[in-house]
Design a protein around this nucleic acid. Structure first.
Lengths: 152, 152
DNA sequence: TCTAATCTTGACTGAAAAGTAAAGATTTGA
DNA sequence: TCAAATCTTTACTTTTCAGTCAAGATTAGA
């Protein structure tokens, strides 16, 4: 029951975008530097977040990424759903539909546990928006210092 | 944020043991059959569960596995902790201690989300015992039919 | 004591997730 | 138009997780 790398870094990147002033963008190299991951890796995450409508991407000089919607309207539950393929999966098939491909036919105790946990987690995440994570993320000054150093 | 195979099948095997009458045991082939996994795989899980004190194992003819404690005193939270290495892990290090090996120094928003989720899940699981999952698991008759067929 | 049934252990194999690399496409501005 | 900056896409490599295999150790019972 661990958060996946995709979920964790996807969220982190969004929080970075949520913490720049409105209208500004962050480029791939900037995001990568801020999160301590490679540019390739960041690129893959941002591509996914763009595809699923959380960020806008603009190419070319002066391009970069920005949130597609206000940070206080993006709930962590939506983000996690996308980064997690939106399935309740066990290891003998998906619990979203009917389990008929394994020995655990019909309802079983474990099924209700897995589905229950999924609901609890989703519910908790549906009470938190990106904007609530900004600021605690790290000191704003420090962030800008890093970006400025990069720009030189 | 998915349950791992080890967690899921570890729990499943314990529920099977919880559902046999007191004093009886289940052998590796029986457990494997009931859960639809290989004997090797079941062996590994049971070894882990034995090592961490949830089951007793006896070797030799008439041997097998049984719960080491009453089913209504085994909480899912304990089981998951063991099957999950008892760590709150993100992907830039453990959140149990201090994060000093990555760019996310000090407290960050994501950290509180991950730790918070972990607490919510543990809390939910600490309200469920193995015995509460017995019976819903599958019809008892069906289970015994399978075991009896194997014995022939 | 011997054999069959059973758990135990460590090495091996395969699959899935994570991360990397490089070439392509688009845009801005000179 | 051209070059530089930027995102996009696909293929590849590495690492981690899951699962398998086979030999070993222990026990019960004949």
């Amino acid at each position: 029951m661990k958060i996946s790398a995709q979920e964790e870094y996807g969220l982190r990147c969004l929080v970075q975008l949520a913490s720049v002033t409105n209208g500004e963008t962050l480029t791939l190299p900037q995001i990568a530097e801020l999160e301590g991951i490679s540019q390739s890796n960041a690129g893959k995450l941002m591509w996914l977040l763009n595809k699923s409508g959380f960020v806008k991407a603009t190419r070319g000089t002066k391009g970069g990424y920005s949130l597609a919607r206000p940070a206080d309207e993006i709930y962590l539950s939506e983000v996690i759903k996308v980064l997690d393929d939106d399935e309740i999966e066990g290891h003998c098939g998906s619990y979203t539909g009917v389990l008929d491909s394994c020995v655990h036919t019909g309802d079983c105790g474990i099924r209700s546990v897995i589905v229950g946990l999924h609901e609890i987690v989703q519910n908790a995440l549906s009470n938190v928006t990106l904007s609530q994570l900004v600021g605690t993320e790290k000191k704003v000054d420090e962030r800008f210092h890093r970006i400025q150093r990069m720009a030189q």
